[in-house]
């Protein structure tokens, strides 16, 4: 197996973030339209068609690719926004679409066979059989792996599938299998799968009680921070709860994934691309994270130790984890 340089895939919530990512050394930028067709349907975020066209020009001039995420699940009786997103992606010339829904994969494969298709993490394809299914049935060329696998499992997986794999290396961390989580809609009625949001800001309330900050989602208290504690999103799976008489972050601490020091292992595991999470984050975050990973990827490719890079200031709760890549996480 020839070791190729890892491709760095970076988030862009706005045209400004896209330029920041490209200028900081992204090989590819992923983004979404400003509607419910993608899993970061946050207020004030994302691209209209004209902004995508401009972004494509900017990225292509500088040798970067643009990937369009259409990775929520089309609503029954209302496929229009999703099929139109795929059509527009083909018309505008994006380098690939990132899809999750089987019906939409089927539509894209039949209607735009030449449009490159990646499988979103939202499809939760976590094993060779499932990945081969999407490759065989819909000509998917790359799979974004769910954040449930260890590096050893990824290496094993890469030997049994005919497509590229992309893995998350930095940013927010889903602890549940992505695309198979309805915690958000249980509390708010809005979910990643149906509305493209998780723990939506519209249902979040921060209440200051003296020197403490309480975060509420819908009708539920998700967390409470003392003045000395760093805060986190009131995402359900990063909340503090009581189980068996004990208060803890049962699902996951407020923390960000960061495996910048594992890049050589991921290369050896046969991974093609690295993904930085954070389309909802500011362009300062994008610039900082992308620049750090650009250097790390180049070093890893040259066989130089990656070294320590401090990204603490942009991590959630100012803490980091290697997540599922290490088995003890389970």
């Amino acid at each position: 197996m020839t070791t190729q340089k890892l491709e760095l895939v970076c988030p862009a919530g706005t045209p400004a973030a896209l330029r920041a990512a490209v200028d900081s050394g992204a090989d590819a930028v992923y983004l979404g339209f400003r509607d419910e067709t993608n899993a970061r349907n946050f207020p004030g975020l994302n691209f209209n068609r004209e902004e995508l066209a401009d972004g494509l020009r900017y990225a292509h001039q500088k040798g970067a690719k643009v990937l369009l995420a259409i990775n929520s699940f089309p609503e029954a009786g209302n496929p229009g926004p999703w099929t139109k997103a795929v059509d527009d992606a083909a018309r505008l010339g994006v380098d690939a679409v990132i899809l999750a829904d089987v019906g939409l994969c089927d539509y894209a494969a039949r209607t735009h066979p030449d449009l490159r298709r990646h499988l979103s993490v939202q499809a939760s394809a976590s094993n060779p059989e499932a990945i081969n299914f999407y490759a065989r049935e819909f000509g998917v060329r790359r799979v974004v792996l769910p954040r449930v696998l260890t590096v050893a499992e990824i290496a094993d997986l890469n030997k049994s599938i005919p497509v590229e794999t992309e893995v998350f290396v930095f940013g927010g961390l889903c602890v549940m299998a992505e695309g198979r989580c309805a915690l958000s809609s249980y509390a708010t009625g809005k979910s990643p799968n149906m509305t493209g949001v998780c723990s939506p800001a519209s249902h979040v309330r921060y209440v200051e009680e003296g020197d403490r900050l309480t975060s509420r989602l819908g009708e539920f208290t998700i967390n409470r921070f003392d003045s000395s504690e760093n805060a986190g999103y009131p995402t359900l799976c990063k909340g503090r709860f009581v189980a068996a008489g004990k208060t803890s972050y049962l699902f996951e601490d407020p923390t960000s994934l960061n495996v910048i020091d594992m890049l050589p292992d991921l290369m050896a595991a046969g991974v093609t691309a690295l993904k930085i999470e954070g389309r909802q984050r500011g362009r300062a975050y994008v610039a900082q994270a992308v620049a750090a990973f650009r250097e790390a990827v180049d070093r890893a490719a040259a066989g130089i130790p990656v070294g320590r890079v401090d990204l603490t200031s942009i991590t959630e709760g100012r803490r980091q984890t290697a997540g599922s890549y290490e088995k003890a996480w389970r």
Binding site: N230, P254, G282, S313, I314
Partner: peptide, 8 residues
């Protein structure tokens, strides 16, 4: 980054 400000 706004989130970073918020987290801190």
């Amino acid at each position: 980054d706004g989130d970073a400000l918020f987290f801190s």
